[in-house]
Amino acid sequence: MASPTATKGKFKFSDKTLLSIIGYIIMTLLAIVCIVPFILIISSSFTDEMAITLNGYQIIPTVFSTEAYSVLFKYPKDMIAAYGVTIGVTAIGTVLGLFLTAMTAYVLSRRDFKWRNQFSFFFFFTTLFNGGLVPWYLMMNALEMKDNYLALVLPLLLNVFYIIVMKSFMSSIPDAITESAKIDGATDFGIFIKLILPLSKPALATIGLFLALGYWNDWYNALLFIGKSEMMPLQYYLYRMLANMDGLRKAMMASGMAVNFAMPTESLKMAMTIVATGPIFLVYPFIQRYFVKGLTIGAVKG
Protein backbone atom coordinates (compact mmCIF):
# COMPACT_ATOMS: atom_id res chain seq x y z
CA MET A 1 0.00 0.00 0.00
CA ALA A 2 1.19 3.50 -0.78
CA SER A 3 1.64 5.67 2.25
CA PRO A 4 0.41 9.24 2.63
CA THR A 5 2.92 11.58 1.07
CA ALA A 6 3.64 15.16 1.92
CA THR A 7 3.46 17.57 -0.99
CA LYS A 8 4.02 21.32 -0.85
CA GLY A 9 4.13 21.19 2.91
CA LYS A 10 0.54 19.96 3.10
CA PHE A 11 -0.37 16.50 4.28
CA LYS A 12 -1.97 14.84 1.22
CA PHE A 13 -3.00 11.35 0.28
CA SER A 14 -1.56 9.96 -2.93
CA ASP A 15 -4.02 8.92 -5.63
CA LYS A 16 -3.11 5.31 -5.00
CA THR A 17 -3.99 5.56 -1.33
CA LEU A 18 -7.21 7.36 -2.16
CA LEU A 19 -8.29 4.58 -4.52
CA SER A 20 -7.18 2.06 -1.96
CA ILE A 21 -9.50 3.54 0.64
CA ILE A 22 -12.41 3.76 -1.84
CA GLY A 23 -11.75 0.18 -2.85
CA TYR A 24 -11.65 -1.15 0.69
CA ILE A 25 -14.92 0.63 1.51
CA ILE A 26 -16.82 -0.43 -1.64
CA MET A 27 -15.57 -4.00 -1.63
CA THR A 28 -16.33 -4.39 2.08
CA LEU A 29 -19.84 -3.10 1.45
CA LEU A 30 -20.32 -5.50 -1.47
CA ALA A 31 -19.02 -8.39 0.64
CA ILE A 32 -21.47 -7.46 3.41
CA VAL A 33 -24.33 -7.38 0.90
CA CYS A 34 -23.31 -10.86 -0.28
CA ILE A 35 -22.99 -12.42 3.16
CA VAL A 36 -25.80 -10.73 5.14
CA PRO A 37 -28.65 -12.76 3.55
CA PHE A 38 -26.96 -15.95 4.76
CA ILE A 39 -26.55 -14.54 8.24
CA LEU A 40 -30.23 -13.56 8.20
CA ILE A 41 -31.26 -17.11 7.40
CA ILE A 42 -28.98 -18.60 10.06
CA SER A 43 -30.12 -16.13 12.74
CA SER A 44 -33.77 -16.61 11.87
CA SER A 45 -33.43 -20.37 12.14
CA PHE A 46 -32.11 -19.93 15.68
CA THR A 47 -34.81 -17.48 16.79
CA ASP A 48 -37.75 -18.35 19.01
CA GLU A 49 -40.95 -18.66 16.94
CA MET A 50 -42.89 -16.33 19.23
CA ALA A 51 -40.18 -13.69 18.90
CA ILE A 52 -40.36 -13.93 15.09
CA THR A 53 -44.13 -13.52 15.15
CA LEU A 54 -43.80 -10.44 17.37
CA ASN A 55 -40.65 -8.81 16.04
CA GLY A 56 -40.10 -10.37 12.62
CA TYR A 57 -36.89 -11.86 11.25
CA GLN A 58 -33.84 -10.05 12.54
CA ILE A 59 -30.13 -10.20 11.91
CA ILE A 60 -29.36 -11.08 15.53
CA PRO A 61 -31.74 -13.52 17.26
CA THR A 62 -33.88 -11.59 19.72
CA VAL A 63 -34.70 -14.76 21.66
CA PHE A 64 -32.30 -17.61 20.95
CA SER A 65 -33.91 -21.00 20.39
CA THR A 66 -33.01 -24.29 18.77
CA GLU A 67 -36.64 -25.41 18.69
CA ALA A 68 -36.84 -25.36 14.87
CA TYR A 69 -33.92 -27.75 14.60
CA SER A 70 -35.18 -30.04 17.34
CA VAL A 71 -38.56 -30.28 15.55
CA LEU A 72 -36.75 -30.93 12.28
CA PHE A 73 -34.59 -33.68 13.75
CA LYS A 74 -37.39 -35.17 15.81
CA TYR A 75 -39.25 -36.21 12.65
CA PRO A 76 -36.44 -36.44 10.14
CA LYS A 77 -37.92 -39.12 7.88
CA ASP A 78 -38.80 -36.89 4.89
CA MET A 79 -35.64 -34.86 5.16
CA ILE A 80 -33.49 -38.00 5.25
CA ALA A 81 -35.34 -39.42 2.27
CA ALA A 82 -34.78 -36.19 0.34
CA TYR A 83 -31.10 -36.23 1.29
CA GLY A 84 -30.85 -39.82 0.10
CA VAL A 85 -32.39 -38.99 -3.27
CA THR A 86 -30.14 -35.97 -3.78
CA ILE A 87 -26.96 -37.79 -2.75
CA GLY A 88 -27.79 -40.77 -4.95
CA VAL A 89 -28.72 -38.68 -7.98
CA THR A 90 -25.68 -36.41 -7.53
CA ALA A 91 -23.26 -39.33 -7.19
CA ILE A 92 -24.57 -41.37 -10.11
CA GLY A 93 -25.16 -38.37 -12.36
CA THR A 94 -21.74 -36.84 -11.71
CA VAL A 95 -19.76 -40.05 -12.26
CA LEU A 96 -21.69 -41.10 -15.36
CA GLY A 97 -21.89 -37.58 -16.77
CA LEU A 98 -18.20 -36.97 -16.22
CA PHE A 99 -17.24 -40.23 -17.90
CA LEU A 100 -19.47 -39.58 -20.94
CA THR A 101 -18.35 -35.94 -21.18
CA ALA A 102 -14.70 -36.98 -21.14
CA MET A 103 -15.18 -39.83 -23.62
CA THR A 104 -17.08 -37.59 -26.05
CA ALA A 105 -14.57 -34.78 -25.64
CA TYR A 106 -11.67 -37.15 -26.28
CA VAL A 107 -13.05 -38.34 -29.61
CA LEU A 108 -13.74 -34.73 -30.67
CA SER A 109 -10.21 -33.74 -29.65
CA ARG A 110 -8.63 -36.42 -31.87
CA ARG A 111 -7.20 -34.54 -34.84
CA ASP A 112 -7.06 -37.72 -36.93
CA PHE A 113 -10.80 -38.33 -36.55
CA LYS A 114 -12.29 -37.49 -39.91
CA TRP A 115 -15.74 -36.33 -38.80
CA ARG A 116 -14.78 -34.37 -35.69
CA ASN A 117 -16.11 -31.09 -37.09
CA GLN A 118 -19.39 -32.60 -38.20
CA PHE A 119 -19.99 -34.21 -34.82
CA SER A 120 -18.91 -31.05 -32.99
CA PHE A 121 -21.52 -29.16 -34.96
CA PHE A 122 -24.12 -31.84 -34.26
CA PHE A 123 -23.64 -31.24 -30.53
CA PHE A 124 -23.18 -27.49 -30.73
CA PHE A 125 -26.30 -26.88 -32.79
CA THR A 126 -28.47 -27.99 -29.86
CA THR A 127 -27.34 -24.90 -27.93
CA LEU A 128 -28.50 -22.61 -30.74
CA PHE A 129 -31.87 -24.09 -31.46
CA ASN A 130 -34.25 -26.32 -29.55
CA GLY A 131 -37.80 -27.52 -29.74
CA GLY A 132 -38.81 -25.71 -26.58
CA LEU A 133 -40.19 -27.06 -23.33
CA VAL A 134 -43.40 -28.65 -24.58
CA PRO A 135 -42.16 -31.30 -27.06
CA TRP A 136 -39.35 -32.21 -24.68
CA TYR A 137 -41.76 -32.54 -21.78
CA LEU A 138 -44.14 -34.73 -23.78
CA MET A 139 -41.26 -36.91 -24.93
CA MET A 140 -39.95 -37.34 -21.40
CA ASN A 141 -43.43 -38.44 -20.41
CA ALA A 142 -43.60 -40.81 -23.37
CA LEU A 143 -40.34 -42.33 -22.07
CA GLU A 144 -42.11 -43.04 -18.77
CA MET A 145 -40.09 -40.46 -16.86
CA LYS A 146 -42.93 -39.53 -14.51
CA ASP A 147 -41.93 -40.52 -10.96
CA ASN A 148 -38.76 -42.06 -12.30
CA TYR A 149 -35.32 -41.32 -10.85
CA LEU A 150 -33.96 -41.23 -14.40
CA ALA A 151 -35.86 -37.95 -14.86
CA LEU A 152 -33.52 -36.44 -12.26
CA VAL A 153 -30.34 -37.92 -13.76
CA LEU A 154 -30.73 -37.78 -17.55
CA PRO A 155 -31.53 -34.11 -18.26
CA LEU A 156 -28.29 -32.89 -16.63
CA LEU A 157 -26.07 -35.75 -17.79
CA LEU A 158 -24.43 -34.14 -20.81
CA ASN A 159 -23.86 -30.46 -21.35
CA VAL A 160 -22.38 -29.15 -24.60
CA PHE A 161 -20.48 -26.40 -22.82
CA TYR A 162 -18.71 -28.90 -20.55
CA ILE A 163 -17.85 -31.07 -23.56
CA ILE A 164 -16.28 -28.04 -25.28
CA VAL A 165 -14.24 -27.07 -22.20
CA MET A 166 -13.08 -30.66 -21.77
CA LYS A 167 -12.26 -30.92 -25.45
CA SER A 168 -10.11 -27.81 -25.42
CA PHE A 169 -8.27 -29.16 -22.37
CA MET A 170 -7.64 -32.51 -24.07
CA SER A 171 -6.51 -30.79 -27.26
CA SER A 172 -3.56 -29.47 -25.25
CA ILE A 173 -2.38 -33.03 -24.53
CA PRO A 174 0.30 -33.83 -27.13
CA ASP A 175 -0.82 -36.04 -30.03
CA ALA A 176 2.39 -38.01 -29.63
CA ILE A 177 0.92 -39.74 -26.56
CA THR A 178 -1.99 -41.18 -28.54
CA GLU A 179 0.23 -41.99 -31.53
CA SER A 180 2.95 -43.84 -29.64
CA ALA A 181 0.36 -45.83 -27.70
CA LYS A 182 -1.28 -46.81 -30.98
CA ILE A 183 2.04 -48.05 -32.30
CA ASP A 184 2.30 -50.17 -29.16
CA GLY A 185 -1.03 -51.71 -30.11
CA ALA A 186 -3.34 -49.95 -27.64
CA THR A 187 -7.01 -49.54 -28.58
CA ASP A 188 -8.67 -46.12 -28.74
CA PHE A 189 -10.77 -46.89 -25.67
CA GLY A 190 -7.71 -48.22 -23.84
CA ILE A 191 -5.78 -45.04 -24.63
CA PHE A 192 -8.68 -42.96 -23.33
CA ILE A 193 -8.94 -44.91 -20.07
CA LYS A 194 -5.26 -45.51 -19.32
CA LEU A 195 -3.58 -42.40 -20.69
CA ILE A 196 -6.00 -39.55 -21.35
CA LEU A 197 -8.16 -39.76 -18.21
CA PRO A 198 -5.21 -39.63 -15.78
CA LEU A 199 -3.71 -36.70 -17.71
CA SER A 200 -7.03 -34.83 -17.61
CA LYS A 201 -7.40 -34.80 -13.82
CA PRO A 202 -7.53 -31.00 -13.42
CA ALA A 203 -10.28 -30.64 -16.03
CA LEU A 204 -12.13 -33.67 -14.62
CA ALA A 205 -12.08 -32.14 -11.13
CA THR A 206 -13.47 -28.84 -12.37
CA ILE A 207 -16.16 -30.24 -14.66
CA GLY A 208 -17.06 -32.88 -12.08
CA LEU A 209 -17.68 -30.21 -9.47
CA PHE A 210 -19.79 -28.15 -11.87
CA LEU A 211 -21.84 -31.27 -12.61
CA ALA A 212 -22.19 -32.15 -8.92
CA LEU A 213 -23.29 -28.62 -8.04
CA GLY A 214 -25.86 -28.74 -10.84
CA TYR A 215 -27.29 -32.01 -9.57
CA TRP A 216 -27.26 -30.93 -5.94
CA ASN A 217 -29.10 -27.69 -6.69
CA ASP A 218 -31.56 -29.13 -9.20
CA TRP A 219 -35.23 -28.78 -8.36
CA TYR A 220 -36.59 -28.06 -11.86
CA ASN A 221 -36.70 -31.64 -13.14
CA ALA A 222 -38.39 -32.72 -9.93
CA LEU A 223 -40.93 -29.93 -10.39
CA LEU A 224 -41.74 -31.33 -13.82
CA PHE A 225 -41.59 -35.06 -13.21
CA ILE A 226 -41.64 -36.07 -9.53
CA GLY A 227 -44.96 -36.28 -7.72
CA LYS A 228 -44.26 -38.87 -5.04
CA SER A 229 -43.06 -37.22 -1.85
CA GLU A 230 -40.58 -39.99 -1.01
CA MET A 231 -38.85 -39.48 -4.38
CA MET A 232 -38.32 -35.74 -4.02
CA PRO A 233 -34.75 -34.43 -4.03
CA LEU A 234 -33.66 -32.01 -1.34
CA GLN A 235 -34.06 -28.70 -3.17
CA TYR A 236 -37.50 -29.55 -4.47
CA TYR A 237 -38.54 -30.78 -1.03
CA LEU A 238 -37.40 -27.44 0.36
CA TYR A 239 -39.28 -25.61 -2.39
CA ARG A 240 -42.47 -27.48 -1.53
CA MET A 241 -42.10 -26.79 2.16
CA LEU A 242 -41.47 -23.09 1.64
CA ALA A 243 -44.45 -22.81 -0.67
CA ASN A 244 -46.74 -24.89 1.45
CA MET A 245 -46.26 -25.11 5.20
CA ASP A 246 -49.58 -26.87 5.55
CA GLY A 247 -48.07 -29.76 3.65
CA LEU A 248 -45.24 -29.84 6.15
CA ARG A 249 -47.66 -29.75 9.04
CA LYS A 250 -49.56 -32.69 7.59
CA ALA A 251 -46.41 -34.65 6.91
CA MET A 252 -45.21 -34.08 10.44
CA MET A 253 -48.54 -35.08 11.91
CA ALA A 254 -48.58 -38.19 9.77
CA SER A 255 -45.21 -39.13 11.19
CA GLY A 256 -46.65 -38.99 14.68
CA MET A 257 -46.51 -35.43 15.94
CA ALA A 258 -49.16 -34.35 18.45
CA VAL A 259 -51.97 -32.56 16.64
CA ASN A 260 -52.19 -29.59 19.00
CA PHE A 261 -48.45 -29.08 18.96
CA ALA A 262 -47.65 -25.47 18.15
CA MET A 263 -45.28 -25.78 15.25
CA PRO A 264 -42.56 -23.20 14.67
CA THR A 265 -43.28 -22.45 11.01
CA GLU A 266 -41.26 -19.31 10.30
CA SER A 267 -38.10 -20.44 12.06
CA LEU A 268 -38.58 -23.96 10.68
CA LYS A 269 -38.56 -22.68 7.09
CA MET A 270 -35.19 -21.09 7.70
CA ALA A 271 -33.83 -24.13 9.56
CA MET A 272 -34.80 -26.34 6.61
CA THR A 273 -33.04 -23.95 4.24
CA ILE A 274 -29.88 -24.22 6.33
CA VAL A 275 -30.05 -28.01 6.51
CA ALA A 276 -30.59 -28.24 2.74
CA THR A 277 -27.67 -25.90 1.99
CA GLY A 278 -25.37 -27.07 4.78
CA PRO A 279 -23.17 -29.43 2.74
CA ILE A 280 -22.46 -26.70 0.19
CA PHE A 281 -21.33 -24.31 2.95
CA LEU A 282 -19.16 -27.05 4.42
CA VAL A 283 -17.32 -27.98 1.22
CA TYR A 284 -17.28 -24.47 -0.24
CA PRO A 285 -13.85 -23.45 1.15
CA PHE A 286 -12.27 -26.56 -0.37
CA ILE A 287 -13.94 -26.66 -3.77
CA GLN A 288 -14.10 -22.95 -4.53
CA ARG A 289 -10.71 -22.79 -6.27
CA TYR A 290 -11.70 -25.47 -8.79
CA PHE A 291 -14.64 -23.35 -9.85
CA VAL A 292 -12.41 -20.30 -10.11
CA LYS A 293 -10.09 -22.35 -12.33
CA GLY A 294 -13.01 -23.45 -14.49
CA LEU A 295 -14.24 -19.88 -14.90
CA THR A 296 -10.84 -18.51 -15.80
CA ILE A 297 -10.37 -21.25 -18.42
CA GLY A 298 -13.70 -20.11 -19.83
CA ALA A 299 -12.63 -16.46 -19.77
CA VAL A 300 -9.36 -17.13 -21.55
CA LYS A 301 -10.86 -19.41 -24.16
CA GLY A 302 -13.77 -17.03 -24.70
Binding site: N217, W219, Q235, Y236
Partner: peptide
Protein backbone atom coordinates in the same frame (compact mmCIF):
# COMPACT_ATOMS: atom_id res chain seq x y z
CA UNK B 1 -29.99 -22.91 -5.65
CA UNK B 2 -32.72 -20.50 -6.67
CA UNK B 3 -34.93 -22.26 -4.13
CA UNK B 4 -32.65 -21.04 -1.35
CA UNK B 5 -32.63 -17.57 -2.90
CA UNK B 6 -36.44 -17.79 -2.77
CA UNK B 7 -36.19 -18.54 0.97
CA UNK B 8 -33.91 -15.55 1.45
Amino acid sequence: SWVVVGAI
